[in-house]
């Protein structure tokens, strides 16, 4: 599992870590019974206070997303899967950030929703959206 933290993100670090775990679940990089990196490993890799990582793991455990196997570490719970609550929670996060961004730029909710649909439709028309993006913005 690769975790990236955005230093400019407003959210507390532990929430960012939680969201990264959720994202990995939804996207499929993390599957049930997969081990999570140890608190020590993740803290060292991200250069983050281990208590922050512990806090994130404890919250995830409380929500039933992960569980702790004594002496072996933290693992993804068998019940946690791509669908359902994880997707919703993730989507809510994305929506919140988009709305904040919209508000910052003086856009209304309906305006934003309409533009999202339009942009998505445009991108579907493109043969390979990834390479198009890499070549630079043509819009």
């Amino acid at each position: 599992m690769l975790v990236n933290l955005d230093p400019r993100d407003a959210r507390p670090l532990y929430l960012q870590i939680i969201d990264e775990v959720r994202r990995a679940l939804v996207v499929g990089t993390l599957r049930p019974e997969d081990p999570l990196p140890s608190v020590r490993e993740l803290a060292s890799e991200l250069v983050v206070n281990p208590r922050t990582v512990s806090q994130a793991y404890q919250e995830l455990e409380r929500e039933g997303v992960v569980y702790v196997r004594r002496g072996q570490g933290t693992f993804v719970a068998p019940g946690a899967h791509r669908g359902g609550d994880e997707r919703r929670a993730l989507a809510r996060g994305v929506a919140k950030r988009a709305l904040l961004d919209a508000r910052r730029n003086g856009l209304g909710v309906e305006e934003l929703v309409a533009m999202i649909r339009e942009t998505a439709a445009d991108e579907e028309g493109e043969p390979s959206t990834v390479s198009a993006a890499n070549q630079g913005d043509e819009e």
């Binding site: 608190v39 803290a43 060292s44 250069v47 983050v48 206070n49 281990p50 208590r51």
Partner: peptide, 12 residues
């Protein structure tokens, strides 16, 4: 960066 990562490990 290595020092701070070491410090994070130490804290753990």
């Amino acid at each position: 960066r290595r020092t701070l990562a070491l410090l994070a490990e130490h804290l753990a």
